[in-house]
Amino acid sequence: MEVNCEGCAGCCMDWRPLLAEAGNDESANKRRAEPLRDDATRAPLDGDTNFVPLTRDEVRAFLEAEMADALTPRFWRAADEHEAVAIDGYEVASVADRPVFFVGLRKPPKPVAPFDLEDESWLPACVFLDPTTLQCRIHDSDLLPDECSAYPAHNIALEQETECERVEAAFGGDRLVDNSVPEDLDGLLLGSQALGEKLFCHPRPERLEGVVERTASGNLTREDRAECLAVAAASSAGTVAISDYHYEWGKEQALEESDSWVTDALEEWESRREDADGVPSAAIADAVETARGAPETPGWDALEEYSSH
C-alpha cells in the first residue's frame, strides 16, 4: 500500500465545498466505507463524509489522555422498522432495541489550501490535522486510530472507492500509487465482529432524547458527547452488555475539565470561523494549536515524495 499524501489530506477533511464552488459536486455524497451502512438505506444523521470509527480501547485511551473533546458520536437512520428505535422524530438504527453508534474524531472548521490550491478555504478538517503542513499531529503517537493507519487499505479490501481516487478524479495528480492490500490487514470488524468493539449499543434510548436531534443539526453539547463516550468505554466485545463501572468512569473522564490543547483550540476555531471576514492564512494554526501545546508536524522536506501509510 503506497499513497502520495503531500498537499492532500483528502481523507482528513470534507472537501465537498471546493467542488460545489467549482460547480462540480458529482462526488458530494460519496463516503468512506462503513461496516453497518448500506448507502441506500442507513444514512448517517451527521454530514461527515469520511468518519473514522474508533475502537472501545481507543476511546478509553483518548479519555485517559484528557482528549474527550476531540471525539463525537455518529448515529444512522434505520434501514427498516424492524431495526428502528424512534427518538426525537427519527427512526434510529438499533440492535436489540438499543440505538447503535460509532465514535470518531471531530472536524472543526480550519483554513486550509489542499490539492495545490493557492488560497485557503474554511473546511471541516480533522481536529488533529495541522492546517499548515496538512499532516497529522498524532501520526507517530499511540493515539493514532487503527482506522487511520490502515486507510485506504480497508476501502480497497471492501472493493470501495478510496478518498485518494476521488481526489485524483476531482483535482488530478497521483495519490493512490500502489493499491495492493497487505496480507496481514486486520481491524475491519465487519457486522457482528464490530459489536462492542467499534459499533456501540446504548442501553437506555430515553437518555438520547435531544441528543439525536442535536446530532442531526450539528449542535451536540459536551454532555451529549460524554453520554455516548461513557457507553462506548463501557461496552463489551461481541455483546450488548455494559459495564457500570466503566460507564461511570467514562462519564467522569469526559466531563472533567481538561488541560489539553484540544479543548481550547476547538473553541477558537469555531469562534474564528463565525467572526471571520474572509479566510486567514493557515499559519494562524501556530497561535491556535501549536502555542497551546499541539504536537508539531515534520513537514515534507525530510520525507520521501511518496509516503506510505
Rank of each mutant, 00 (worst) to 15 (best):
A276W: 01
P203K: 03
E268L: 03
D178A: 09
D178V: 08
R175I: 05
D97P: 01
L36S: 11
S192T: 13
C228F: 00
R37G: 09
D301V: 15
E120T: 04
W15E: 04
V167T: 14
L144F: 15
L188W: 01
E209M: 07
T132S: 15
M13C: 11
R106Y: 00
F62T: 02
L220G: 04
E26M: 07
A157D: 11
R31W: 01
S27K: 13
D178Q: 11
G196D: 03
A93W: 04
A302P: 09
V100N: 10
A113V: 10
A93G: 03
D259Y: 06
V167M: 12
R225V: 09
F102N: 01
E66W: 02
L129Y: 04
A232W: 09
L229Q: 03
R272T: 02
V127D: 01
A125V: 15
A153E: 12
L176C: 08
E6D: 14
P53Y: 00
T215L: 13
P152I: 05
E163V: 11
P108Y: 00
F128P: 08
E304C: 07
T263I: 02
A285G: 02
R32S: 13
Q160N: 12
N4Y: 13
S180V: 08
Q135H: 00
L45G: 01
A285P: 00
A302E: 05
D178F: 12
G210C: 03
A282G: 01
P108V: 00
E58F: 07
S180T: 06
D286F: 13
E159G: 12
K198S: 03
S243V: 06
K251G: 06
V167S: 03
Q193C: 08
F171E: 10
A287L: 13
N50V: 13
E91V: 03
I138L: 08
S192V: 12
D130Y: 10
V177W: 04
V181D: 07
E197I: 14
L255V: 07
T263C: 14
C228V: 07
G23R: 10
A285I: 05
S281M: 05
I156T: 03
W76Y: 01
R74A: 07
G173L: 09
N24A: 11
E91D: 09
S180F: 03
T263Q: 09
H82W: 07
E165R: 14
S149Q: 11
N29M: 11
E270D: 06
F51A: 11
E304Y: 13
R273I: 10
T290R: 13
K30C: 11
S281F: 12
D277F: 12
